[in-house]
Computed example of a mutant assay.
Amino acid sequence: MHNKKSLATIFIFILLSCWVMYISLSADTRKLNNEVVAEAKMEEISEFDEVHYFRSTAKKPDFELTSQSLEIINQNLMKFIEPQGVLFQADRSLKYSAKRGNMNQKKQFLTLSGDVSLKDKLSDYKSEKLTYDGQKKLMHASGGINSEIIDEKTRDIIKISSEYMSSDLNSEIAVFTGDVKGQIQRRRRYEGGVKFQSELMAFNSPKSQISLDNYVEIRRNNYYLTAGRAEIFLENFNKKLKYYTLYDDVKLEERINLPSGKSQLRRAFAEKLEARQREGKVILTGAPRVEQGKDIIKGYQITLKENVELVEVDDAKSSFSIKRKKDD
């Protein structure tokens, strides 16, 4: 009798175990089937050749694309070859082209690679890779970047090459990093321009201001300048205000043409240099020192004028200027 009860208990235990295993396996099977179905849905692909694709939202143009080939995955992710098109934003239209790219329509995220070009009415960016987040209005680019930006207030043309670039279209600030080289061309060509070089550059469009940082070099007319950082205020070119300012270990070199027809090298050193373009002068402060021929000039503040041998010294123990009668 005892054995029968034991066998019955064992039998019931086995049945319960089998039932639990069955339920578990059934759940796993349903889960697997669901995953297979989901995977099948993820691989839903539509393919097109020689495409002209246009999309609008709320009766407003949103996205336009012409490409050699187009894949649309799950009616969202678009992959294209040789794309050319337009991204329509609330305040601007961005024209783009590349060798290949993709677009996540839900996230409004565009990725382009190979001979990339992205431009609007005030800027033109070229690079090897570029991403644009349409929701956040953020742009990132890398590889052989060549950019051309028009300052909306002054109409100055700013040409920049760098390794990386980030741009916030909301704040209208673009940042360039890695072996940055650039040039500012005035609207009136006879006014000349400025060449610059640094490791980092930021262009603030609303302020019409360029900021340079780390190993800064600037060439303007006859001046060759180096410093730790610098600022250029594009709107102040024709005003009695600072056009550009350099900070931290500032050095200036200038070749002065003398009346005799010879030239003389002038070097200047300071912690800060402020250039007033309209007045044609630079003001040196922060332990300034000028080496001109055999003369060494020191003072609290020193003012130089381009290609003029005269040196003005203010707030020194004795204020003086040097003007040679004979050339060295």
Rank of each mutant, 00 (worst) to 15 (best):
E43P: 00
R30C: 01
F48P: 01
R55T: 09
I23K: 12
E50M: 03
M21C: 15
A27L: 12
S17C: 10
E39S: 04
A38T: 14
S24E: 04
F48T: 02
W19G: 10
S26L: 10
H52N: 08
K41I: 06
L25E: 12
A40F: 11
E39G: 05
I45C: 06
F13H: 15
A27N: 07
R30Y: 07
V36W: 02
W19F: 02
L32A: 10
A58I: 05
S46C: 12
F48E: 01
A38P: 03
A40K: 13
A27K: 09
T57V: 04
S24L: 03
V37R: 10
S17F: 13
T57Q: 01
T29S: 03
M42C: 09
I45R: 11
R55C: 07
K59P: 00
W19P: 02
H52C: 09
C18A: 13
V36P: 00
W19E: 13
E50L: 03
D49L: 10
D49G: 15
F54R: 02
V37A: 12
V51F: 04
I23M: 14
N33C: 11
R55M: 05
A40W: 15
K60N: 08
L15I: 13
L16Y: 15
T29N: 04
V20E: 04
W19R: 11
I45T: 10
R30W: 02
A38R: 11
M21N: 14
V36Q: 01
S24A: 13
S24C: 00
A58V: 04
L32I: 09
E39V: 05
E44T: 07
V51W: 00
R30N: 03
F48R: 03
R55K: 10
N34K: 04
V36F: 00
Y53K: 04
N33H: 06
